Computed example of a mutant assay.
Amino acid sequence: MPGWLEVVIRSFVSLVILFTVSKIFIRKSFTQVTYFEFVCGIVIGAILALGSINLQIPIAYPIMGLLIWGFIPYFMGWLSIKSETFRNLAYGRGIPIIKDGKVLEDNMKQQRYSSDELLKQLRSKNVFQVADVEFAVLETSGDISVLLKKDYQPVTPKDMGIKVAPIKEPETVIMDGKILDEPLATIGKNRQWLEMELEKIGVAIENVYLGQVDSYGQLTVDLFDDKLKVPSPQQLPLLLANIKKCQADLEAFALQTNNPTAKAMYEKNADEMMVVLEKVEPYLKQ
């Protein structure tokens, strides 16, 4: 067999095995990889390089080495799930470095973590003053998890007592100008409905790069031509405006009539409509 052909075959076999190993054994992003797993990756790369071009080495040897070095991190991950002791020994645990706004210098020295590194990590999380931090932990990956003091945490609608609509994952129904029938069926819609919604905004399906339907049934689209502007969905604002108009009309009718029975009826319905408005307004606002 010619040498160049053997190199091609070796390289192809190694890539197939590497792809299989990475899909089965490695399920982490690069930022979550530990130092040991990183070293294993380097060793696997060296095995692949040597096994692909060094024709004096039998191809079974690099394949065997690749499987072993790929299985080791997987086995350690499985064992760490079963044993907390092994997990702490192999991967370590988070170390507190700030508590009640004070830096724990002993833990910093123990982890050989400098003040400059600490401040840099805090700035990356938009924290510029150590005193604002309630608690901070140095994770095994080298990142810092920060809990700000209550006074410095962002205000949420719950803190202000404001009800907001729940958010669910939108369904992508158009991609690259093609309709995706399965997501449409998931939300109980069909192609006819989609074509009607596109007709309302004056857009053809083949001109849509991406189309999504939110949990309220509103369609938003992104066109291939970025210069074209598409109007935002108006179903929910129109519904809110109609409810407000109905409530205002009932109050107006109550003021205009001189019939006590009719006035009482209009006022009662206006109050009930106001209750409905207060309940649905957080869900209809955009």
Rank of each mutant, 00 (worst) to 15 (best):
G142Q: 06
D143T: 13
I144L: 14
I144M: 08
S145G: 12
V146Q: 13
V146W: 10
V146F: 11
L147C: 01
L148F: 05
L148K: 09
K149D: 06
K149T: 00
K149V: 00
K149Q: 12
K150G: 04
K150T: 09
K150N: 07
K150I: 04
D151A: 14
Y152L: 03
Y152K: 12
Y152C: 01
Y152W: 07
Q153L: 11
Q153V: 02
V155S: 05
V155I: 14
T156V: 07
P157D: 07
P157L: 08
P157G: 06
K158H: 06
K158S: 05
K158F: 04
K158D: 07
D159K: 06
M160V: 13
M160N: 13
M160R: 15
M160P: 09
G161S: 02
G161C: 03
I162F: 12
V164W: 04
P166N: 08
I167Y: 08
P170M: 00
E171N: 03
T172C: 03
I174A: 01
M175P: 02
M175F: 07
D176N: 14
D176T: 09
G177Y: 11
K178N: 07
K178M: 04
I179W: 00
I179E: 00
L180Q: 03
D181Y: 06
E182Q: 12
E182H: 10
A185G: 02
A185F: 01
T186R: 14
I187A: 04
I187P: 08
G188V: 05
K189D: 07
N190C: 00
R191L: 13
R191K: 15
Q192E: 14
Q192A: 14
W193E: 02
W193D: 01
L194K: 06
L194H: 07
L194Y: 11
E195P: 04
E195R: 11
E195A: 03
M196A: 11
E197I: 01
L198C: 10
E199W: 03
K200M: 12
K200A: 13
K200T: 00
I201V: 12
I201C: 05
G202W: 08
V203A: 09
I205W: 11
E206R: 13
E206G: 03
E206C: 05
N207M: 15
N207W: 14
N207T: 14
V208F: 04
Y209G: 09
